[in-house]
Amino acid sequence: MTAIGREMKELIPELSELCREVMEEVIKIYDEGGKLKVNRKTDGSPVTNADMIANEIIVNGLKKITPGIPIISEEMPLPEYRDRKNSDYLWMVDPIDGTYGLIERSGDFTINLALIKDHAPVIGMVGVPVSGEIYSAVAGGGAQVEKNGHRSHLEANIFSKKDRGLRFICSPNQEMEKLTNYFEKFDQPRLKYRSGTIKFLLVASGQADIYPSIRRINEWDTAAGQLIIEEAGGVVLRADNDQPLKYNKPDLRNPPFIAYGDIKDFP
């Protein structure tokens, strides 16, 4: 029994139901493009009515499932560090990760939920509205994907850095020229591009081997995906010191990082 009064795995069915509810509401807006309304935040990034609807459903749902656990969401005012630094648990939420994918209708957008304890994710869940898939992981309990009531265990691909043709999945929005020297270390690497948390899911499911990120993206962008990769046999590490990403930091932005599948010769 945990401090939240329940075993972690016991939360998964309720969280899945909540995630499914959000996905259904978001896909209604996505399928009827005229319903999507786009505004701009103070930093210039886009936010849509779908983001706000998803946020409301998630926050209300989490308050019922885990009463009293603080929630950090991209679409809510962020609490000061002094008010959250001593939290035993907290939720890290991105109601829609990949808002550009929603707006541009690429399909690369997800619903991200992660429960943080001791600066690490202990529950991670990612819903993919366009496919209907829900990926989930519990620390020490493995990772799975569920679609149409069928659950499959996730296993990252086993590989060596020396293997020819390793599959890299990259963000189309980062400055790829800064990664030129990195790719030269590998034998005929194959590069593909996808947006948002989809990249984590491709590594966790064995469809990609390595995801390098030189961008400083936020904790709610990575927490759920990190745990899903870890529980599928991979690792997500800072690019500067090969340590796992940490959560609920004073600065909620992550340093550059590299997500690996089940790499045999690390470091």
Rank of each mutant, 00 (worst) to 15 (best):
S131R: 13
E133W: 02
I134C: 05
I134D: 10
Y135A: 00
S136H: 13
S136Q: 09
A137Q: 09
A139I: 15
G141R: 12
G141F: 11
Q144K: 14
V145R: 02
N148W: 05
N148A: 08
H150S: 14
H150G: 03
H153F: 15
E155R: 15
E155P: 05
A156R: 05
N157D: 15
N157E: 12
N157Q: 14
I158Q: 15
I158G: 13
F159A: 08
S160Y: 14
K161S: 14
K161C: 10
K162H: 11
K162C: 06
D163V: 04
G165D: 03
F168E: 01
F168C: 01
I169M: 08
E175G: 10
M176T: 07
E177K: 15
K178I: 03
K178L: 05
K178F: 05
Y182G: 00
F183E: 06
E184V: 05
F186N: 06
D187H: 13
Q188W: 13
L191R: 11
K192M: 15
T197F: 04
I198N: 08
F200Q: 02
A204T: 02
A204Y: 03
S205Q: 11
S205G: 11
Q207V: 08
A208K: 11
D209W: 06
I210K: 10
Y211H: 11
Y211S: 07
P212R: 04
S213I: 09
R215I: 13
I217P: 02
N218V: 14
D221A: 11
T222W: 07
A224P: 11
G225C: 00
G225H: 00
Q226P: 00
Q226L: 03
I228W: 00
I228D: 00
I229K: 02
I229D: 03
I229W: 02
E230C: 00
V236N: 07
V236S: 07
L237H: 01
R238C: 08
R238Q: 07
R238S: 10
R238E: 08
A239R: 07
N241Y: 02
N241E: 02
D242E: 10
Q243L: 04
P244G: 00
L245C: 01
L245R: 00
Y247N: 13
Y247F: 15
P250F: 05
P250V: 04
D251T: 08
L252M: 10
